[in-house]
Amino acid sequence: MTDQNKAAAEARRRRSTVARPIREELLRTYRSQGDRTDESRWADVTGWWRDATVLARLGPALAGLFPDSGPTVVLGPQSRGTLLGALVAAHLGVGLIEIRKDDGPAADSESWRYRTTPPDYRDRHLRLGFPKRLLPAGERVLFVDDWIDTGGQALGAHGLVEDSGAHWIGAAVIVDALTEPRLRRDLAVKSLLRNKEL
């Protein structure tokens, strides 16, 4: 078999792996800590990062939620959104902008764009930002994160995109836990799983 044939066979194998539903693998590697009545119950998604097959398929799967949207950049909030955003950006062949949270006085406010979020899932108002030079007007932005609950961080990111004169394509997330259908529609949220499935 020639090198060219080997490369073509490997590309076909990768495409078939990506084409299989990822839902079952996400459910298999997910854990919840605490019981369903426990207020301090939390999602343990570390199994998603540990499983090489899931990790390899997350970028293509999240990008596949918006197949014909043509993003020119991916936007991911620190830290899990940045991890996932890098996977999606690499798959799409575009760059990544990391949204920093509560960066404090170290970031020069003249060269940074900021927004404060509505309350997030922990009832915090976060200050989100990134350097202005990274997102010029006219860019097409795909927001990526692992989980959307109240929509606070996605709303803050949406505001940053609008302030930049860029175009918000939508939010690609692993888990949609939104309770307000209006937010899902306004933010164009698409997910691999719904919270009730976990």
Score class of each variant (00 low, 15 high):
57 R>Q: 13
14 R>I: 10
130 F>R: 02
47 G>H: 05
117 T>I: 10
86 A>I: 06
125 H>D: 06
135 L>M: 14
109 S>W: 06
139 E>T: 03
25 E>R: 12
74 V>H: 03
164 S>T: 07
147 W>D: 09
79 S>C: 09
119 P>M: 12
196 K>V: 09
21 P>E: 11
125 H>I: 01
76 G>K: 01
118 P>A: 13
123 D>E: 14
56 A>V: 02
167 H>D: 10
109 S>Q: 14
159 G>F: 07
34 G>V: 11
79 S>A: 15
60 P>F: 00
150 T>H: 04
154 A>S: 10
176 D>Q: 09
132 K>Q: 12
56 A>E: 15
67 P>T: 05
183 L>V: 06
157 A>W: 04
166 A>T: 09
139 E>K: 13
180 E>Q: 14
50 R>L: 14
136 P>M: 03
78 Q>W: 08
95 G>I: 10
28 R>H: 13
118 P>F: 06
164 S>D: 03
121 Y>T: 09
39 E>I: 12
31 R>C: 00
110 E>C: 10
68 D>P: 12
100 R>H: 08
105 P>Q: 09
162 E>T: 13
100 R>E: 11
12 R>P: 00
197 E>L: 02
42 W>A: 08
105 P>T: 14
172 A>R: 01
125 H>M: 03
37 T>R: 15
50 R>K: 12
67 P>L: 06
41 R>W: 08
99 I>P: 09
119 P>C: 04
191 S>P: 06
178 L>D: 04
81 G>D: 12
113 R>H: 04
70 G>R: 15
89 A>S: 13
175 V>T: 12
44 D>I: 01
63 A>K: 00
77 P>E: 11
152 G>I: 06
102 D>Q: 10
159 G>R: 03
104 G>V: 04
116 T>G: 05
143 F>L: 12
124 R>N: 15
17 T>K: 14
12 R>V: 11
1 M>R: 08
180 E>D: 15
69 S>P: 00
146 D>C: 10
34 G>E: 06
148 I>P: 02
100 R>V: 04
93 G>W: 01
77 P>R: 02
26 L>T: 03
160 L>Y: 02
137 A>H: 01
104 G>K: 12
157 A>S: 15
62 L>M: 07
96 L>S: 02
184 R>D: 01
117 T>N: 07
18 V>H: 14
180 E>G: 01
59 G>K: 01
148 I>H: 07
197 E>V: 05
44 D>Y: 07
120 D>I: 00
14 R>H: 08
193 L>F: 03
24 E>Q: 13
153 Q>H: 10
178 L>W: 07
168 W>G: 03
152 G>R: 07
137 A>I: 01
11 A>R: 14
40 S>R: 14
13 R>L: 15
74 V>N: 00
92 L>M: 08
61 A>C: 05
51 D>S: 04
128 L>I: 11
170 G>A: 07
158 H>F: 04
131 P>M: 08
196 K>C: 06
164 S>N: 02
6 K>L: 15
31 R>A: 13
13 R>K: 13
18 V>A: 04
110 E>Y: 07
164 S>K: 08
54 V>C: 08
27 L>I: 11
83 L>K: 06
137 A>P: 15
40 S>F: 09
97 I>F: 12
198 L>I: 13
148 I>F: 04
54 V>L: 10
126 L>N: 13
